[in-house]
């Protein structure tokens, strides 16, 4: 599918994302620093509360902040992607623009914000924990980040057209995100769960990604990539299905908005 993205389409997506980023932090007092503060704030509170309780887990704080930042990307990107068509409806009603560009631009926007967060993460790892991942592990980490992007895009392709017709879907998702946050081993290590519950939690794709990101970035151990390849293959199949679904359901979307 990426062969089909023309230069102009890439430029449009990037320009839309750039505009949204500028607007997002425009009027606020601290501006771009809000990008750092939110996950950092969440981390500080949770770390303060739970670090002694989970101190048998090596590098608990580093794992905690990794989980929080990756989760923020997922939450932000899926929410922004889902609502993108409606938020940008004023453009869609006046100019021809392929609708998928708007969805991808929204996910990209969240991605850029995520990269700013990554800066604190890396500072943290480097200076506080003296963890310096070697290039191969950094590469693998970014592979997992890419998987989150992909999940978010697939999710958005399915939900964006539904959201246009079912306007409280965002609130439903907001609630589900809250629940899923606690159903993912971000705050707690997965080991504390009994076996039967552990297998349910493992079904959560974010569990897979966050766990493996931690292994790669913090424990710096190599993993069996066959699982990753299967995961990516499933995602690509999902992407294909998402595109088909999206095209079918957005055909007369503008007329109904």
């Amino acid at each position: 599918m990426f062969r089909l993205i023309s230069r102009h389409q890439r430029e449009t997506i990037w320009e839309l994302a750039k505009t949204d980023i500028k607007l997002r932090y425009q009027g606020s007092f601290l501006g771009i620093f809000w990008v750092f503060l939110k996950p950092l704030g969440v981390f500080l509170v949770l770390n303060f509360v739970f670090s002694t309780y989970f101190n048998h887990t090596p590098n608990y704080p580093a794992k905690l902040i990794t989980g929080i930042i990756l989760w923020s990307l997922f939450a932000d990107a899926t929410m922004k992607g889902m609502t993108s068509l409606v938020v940008k409806s004023h453009i869609l009603k006046k100019v021809y623009m392929p609708k998928w560009e708007i969805v991808v631009a929204a996910v990209l926007h969240s991605g850029v914000v995520f990269f700013f967060n990554l800066i604190i993460l890396f500072f943290f790892l480097l200076f506080y924990y003296k963890i310096v991942p070697s290039p191969i592990f950094i590469f693998l980490f970014f592979y997992y980040v890419l998987q989150i992007y992909l999940i978010s895009v697939v999710f958005s392709f399915f939900t964006s057209s539904i959201y246009a017709r079912l306007r409280d879907l965002d609130q439903v998702w907001e609630l589900l995100l809250q629940i899923l946050f606690y159903a993912t081993p971000i705050i707690f290590p997965i080991e504390i769960l009994p076996e039967n519950i552990r297998s349910i939690v493992n079904l959560n794709p974010m569990t897979f990604i966050i766990q493996r990101s931690r292994i790669v970035l913090i424990d710096q151990t190599l993993v069996n990539i066959s699982y990753d390849l299967i995961f990516t293959a499933i995602l690509l199949a999902g992407l294909f299905a998402g595109v088909v679904f999206f095209n079918k359901n957005t055909r007369f979307l503008v007329e109904k908005m």
Partner: peptide, 16 residues
């Protein structure tokens, strides 16, 4: 976008 400068808006609008 009302919150962006004329310059930024030219860019966005031109690309759209």
């Amino acid at each position: 976008s009302p919150d962006l400068s004329g310059r930024d808006n030219i860019f966005l609008n031109g690309i759209i």
